[in-house]
Simulated scan of single mutants.
Amino acid sequence: MAYHIKSKKSVVKLPYLPFSATIKDGTDVLLDSYRDEHEQKVYEILKHIVNVEGDSYPQEDMTNIEDFRAYYLTLDVFVCLEKTSKEVLGAFYIKPNFPGRCSHICNAGFIVKVSARGRGVGNFMAEMYLRLAKDLGYRASFFNLVFVTNEASVRLWRKLGFKEIGRVPNVGNLKGKGYTDALQFYYDFTA
């Protein structure tokens, strides 16, 4: 690891959470701060994405819940819940992409439950991310590794006005896809 970012929860309270909305398919959802009661559901979603799909996160294995906690729960985490049942449809974290003097630039990791994909959950979370990250005090967002084969993600960041600032050739050896390029996206919250 090139550097270490200290884990700590944000002290900023976001008074508009939980935030209620209706997504593309007509489902009423809530975006709220992660709580311990969400752990198993969020873990299961990420474990499926990493271990079964293997084509959108760089990790090769997520079978240990301690690895999940150390990676995903180190700073601010938010969940998208179906409003009535409180079913976890997706989640994302927001944390500094770099340490110290560069910690004003954040990164995020989004996950959507397989059965909730294509319904607007990812789009809703991405739009909320733009608001939340800015309100948490970040000045910009930088996504290091958006694999070119993750077409839904690439389309979403372009649609939301992220600038494509780089391409890393053959960076990911993805399950079923082999060596794959990744795009890098940047968004300036101060503009």
Results as ranks from 00 to 15, higher is better:
Tyr71Arg: 14
Gly90Phe: 05
His104Ser: 06
Phe68Gln: 06
Ala108Lys: 07
Leu81Ile: 04
Pro96Ile: 06
Gly109Cys: 03
Ile105Asn: 01
Asn64Gly: 01
Ile65Asp: 12
Gly90Cys: 04
Pro99Lys: 02
Cys80Asn: 12
Ile94Gln: 03
Thr84Gln: 11
Glu66Tyr: 07
Pro99Thr: 02
Cys102Asn: 13
Ile94Pro: 02
Arg101Glu: 10
Asp67Arg: 10
Glu82Thr: 03
Thr63Met: 11
Asp67Ala: 11
Asn64Trp: 09
Phe98Cys: 08
Val88Asp: 10
Pro99Ser: 02
Gly109Arg: 03
Cys106Tyr: 12
Thr63Trp: 02
Thr74His: 00
Ala91Pro: 03
Glu60Ala: 03
Phe68Asp: 02
Ile105His: 04
Asn107Arg: 12
Pro99Ala: 00
Val88Cys: 11
Lys83Val: 04
Ser85Arg: 07
Cys102Lys: 13
Glu82His: 04
Leu73Glu: 07
Ile65Arg: 15
Pro99His: 02
Lys83His: 13
Thr63Ile: 07
Asp67Thr: 12
Cys106Asp: 13
Gly109Pro: 01
Gly100Arg: 15
Phe68Arg: 07
Ala108Leu: 10
Lys95His: 12
Ile105Glu: 01
Ala70Asn: 04
Ile105Arg: 01
Asn97Glu: 07
Lys95Pro: 00
Tyr71Cys: 14
Asn107Asp: 12
Cys80Met: 15
Val79Gly: 09
Asn97Lys: 10
Asn107Ile: 08
Asp67Leu: 09
Leu73Gln: 05
Asp76Val: 05
Asn64Phe: 10
Gly90Tyr: 02
Tyr71Met: 14
Thr63Leu: 11
Asn107Leu: 07
Cys106Asn: 15
Leu89Thr: 11
Phe98Gly: 07
Ile111Trp: 00
Lys95Val: 05
Val88Asn: 06
Lys83Gln: 12
Glu66Gly: 07
Arg69Asn: 09
Asn97Thr: 00
Met62Tyr: 10
Ser103Trp: 10
Met62Lys: 07
Glu82Asn: 05
Pro96Thr: 04
Lys83Cys: 05
Asn97Arg: 11
Ile94Leu: 01
Ser85Phe: 04
Phe110Met: 13
Ala91Trp: 10
Thr74Asn: 01
Phe78Lys: 10
Glu60Asp: 01
Asp76Pro: 02
Thr84Trp: 00
Asp67Trp: 02
Phe98Leu: 12
Phe98Asp: 01
Cys80Lys: 13
